[in-house]
Nucleic acid binder design. Sequence first.
DNA 1: AGCGCCTAATC
DNA 2: ATCGCAT
DNA 3: ATGCGATGATTAGGCGCT
Length: 509
Amino acid sequence: MISKESGLIVKTDILCNVLRTVMDTTADDVLPIVYLLANRIAPAHEGLELGIGEASVINVLAEAYGRTKVGHRKLYNQLGDWGLVAKACRSSQSMMSKPNALTVTKVFNTFQLIAKELRKDSQEKKKNHIKGLLVAASDCEPLYLIRLLQANLRIGLAKQTLLAALGQAALYAHSTPPPNIQSPLEEAVKIVKKAYSVFPVYDKIVPALLSGGVWNPRLHRHAIFGDVSVSDMCRTMEPIHYIDNGSVEIYSRNAERNTGKFPDVVSEVKRLKKSSVRSFVLDCELVAYNREEQKILPFQNLYSSFEEETGYFQFATAITSNDLDKIQEFLDTAVLLFNCEGLIIKTLTKDATYEPAKRSLHWLKLKKDYMENLGDSLDLVPFAAFHGKGKRTGVYGAFLLACYDSTNGEYQSICKLGTGFSEADLEDRSASLNSEVISGPKYYQYDDSVKPAPDVWFKPKEVWEVKAAGLTISPNHCAAVGIVDADKGVSLRFPRLTAVTALTALLCR
DNA sequence: AGCGCCTAATC
DNA sequence: ATCGCAT
DNA sequence: ATGCGATGATTAGGCGCT
């Protein structure tokens, strides 16, 4: 029902009703349902992952539902979704007897077992867990089992809508009358989203909602912090933490623990922090740095808390200005002189606080390639394509592009491209290139060890204008091989289509 | 021990 | 990361 | 403006095979 509906309000409504029903009947199922909908199996900081990808899915489908892998692949190219393949195979299988019903909790528990299979024979054991589920599945269950295993439910409902529905369901389900608030529904959603942004652990949020409703003080910031250990709390935030007891922890934006990856940062933070500072959470970015070069300019806040030391711990440079020309000049300097990607622009007039995972106009990214005259724009030739998946089923989902090397008179692969076209563009390009299909990569310098291999090859026909954030040395592409590196080529960072410029009538010869 | 495949993660 | 679509 | 789901280059680390 949710996947057929396009509006988020109605999707939220449907899920809200599901959750209310479950809260009222089998409340223990709420947490597993939430985890499955969130495509997670544990809080991010626990580092527990399914470890199941497309290759595993292909293998297990072949074993559980017969047919050959080639047969499955063919079906997949038509359907664009391994879940749909599973469903199709299952429904064409004769069923000896009606299997025992799968429950949400059984599925979620099995997913946890899969995630916990490690080391020797883990792949085989994971596969057997999945086979058990697939054999017990009927109707639409194989479809959703496979999509859940791939962490992509594809029903147009993700975390934000899940949190909203949770808040609304908890509001309706609890008997306590709402406090004197204008719009209780909106407020309930805000509270749950805020609780999640402060402490993204469903194991705490869901029980709190179930036992005390949305107005439960346990959902508020300070209460949450009081309710959990300091180390648990710090594990959910980002990215450098210094705790009273002298320990340093580093986390990614998605709460992955990265402390072990930066032992040098840990030791420098400990060394350079002043003894008067007892604890902090520092939002920052780590960059590689050439210590022979240098440039520092001060910016308030942080300065009273840290010793600056060139090459070890430096503050970012900044200007404060309303003047467009000055900002432009600063951007040019940053990009052209220091090889920076661009600037972050911050409002100083409003109370411009930073909230993790929340977009706002307080902080804006200004990158060189957002601008017409800066950034890299290239004329490239699409020479192969990949069948689209999901909403791109039936058209190509991505293309392999080449640049033309006039010195050698050859086309060299430079990047794949899968964004920038409208749905109509995609149909038009697919149709146009389909008139020039050839059997293999005969005009091109192309590394066939790079997987997956394209599905279809084309004669050179069109020239596309592609914008990128920059060039990278590539082990996977052939552009300029031997020039930038003995056996590495060049590829593009964040490539996207900006225009279809011409037919390559001349280059074809 | 070394290598290739795969997955999950960053941007 | 970028981008387009639906709301 | 927001949420979602198509898609990009690249890397690290786990697992299993030789």
